[in-house]
Amino acid sequence: MKALVMRGAGQFGIEEVPMPICGDDEVLVRVKSVAICGSDPVLLAGGSMKDGLPRSLPHIPGHEGAGVIEQIGKNVRGYKVGDAVAVESHLGCGYCENCQAGHYNLCMNFGKVELGHKQYGFTVPGCFAEYCVYRTEVLHKIPDNLTYDHGALTDTVATAFHLIQQAGVKPGGWTTIIGCGPVGMAMLMLCRAMGSKTIVLETGSRLKKAKEFGADYAIDFMDTDALEQVLAVTDHIGADQSFDCAGNRASMNLALHTCRRGGTVGLVAIPAKPEMEIDIKTIVWDEKKLVGSRGNPNCHKQVLEMMSAGYIEAEKMISHHFPLDQFKEALDLFTSRADGVVKVIITI
Rank of each mutant, 00 (worst) to 15 (best):
M222W: 00
N109R: 06
G111T: 04
V341D: 04
R261Y: 10
D332V: 07
V133G: 05
F213S: 00
G82P: 06
C180Q: 10
E228Q: 12
K197W: 06
P171M: 07
G78C: 05
Y311P: 01
I142M: 05
T282V: 15
S39M: 00
D40R: 15
V291C: 08
D279P: 08
F128E: 14
T123N: 10
I164N: 03
V284M: 15
M252E: 09
M306F: 10
V233W: 12
V85E: 03
L304H: 02
M222R: 14
G52T: 13
A86V: 07
V17M: 09
N145T: 00
I278V: 15
C127L: 13
S242F: 14
D325F: 09
L188Y: 06
G172S: 08
T156H: 00
D25Q: 13
A269W: 01
V200I: 06
C93S: 12
S251G: 01
K273M: 11
G47N: 11
V31G: 04
V29G: 11
A226G: 07
E277F: 12
T123C: 07
A152E: 09
T159P: 04
G179C: 10
H257R: 15
G10H: 07
G292A: 03
T335N: 09
H63Q: 13
G94T: 09
D149T: 09
G266Q: 02
K74N: 08
K197D: 04
L267G: 01
G23H: 13
S89T: 05
H140G: 05
M276I: 03
T335Y: 04
V291I: 15
A86Y: 01
P143R: 09
T264S: 09
Y217H: 08
T176N: 09
I14N: 05
S89I: 00
K273V: 09
F213A: 07
A246N: 10
A255S: 13
V342N: 13
G195S: 04
S48E: 14
A84S: 13
M222V: 00
A218P: 11
G102P: 03
G173D: 04
L190Q: 09
G62P: 01
L115Y: 15
K141R: 15
L115V: 00
I69N: 02
S308W: 02
K288P: 03
F161H: 05
P182T: 11
A3R: 11
F12H: 06
S205P: 14
L331M: 15
D240L: 13
V230C: 12
G266N: 05
L57Q: 02
N98V: 04
T176I: 08
C99M: 06
L115P: 00
G13Y: 07
G184I: 13
G78T: 00
G8E: 14
F12Y: 15
M252T: 14
K273Q: 15
S48T: 10
K197F: 03
A84W: 09
P20C: 10
G121H: 11
G184Q: 02
A160P: 07
F221H: 03
E313C: 05
V341H: 04
S251C: 05
R249Q: 14
S293T: 01
V303Q: 02
D325C: 06
M108Q: 15
H321Q: 08
V81Q: 01
A210L: 12
G214R: 05
G94C: 09
F322P: 02
R206T: 14
G266Y: 03
C99Q: 06
D325E: 15
Q11K: 04
G310N: 05
S308K: 04
L106N: 10
Q166F: 06
P171A: 12
T198M: 03
A152L: 10
E26N: 12
D24M: 10
F221N: 01
E130I: 15
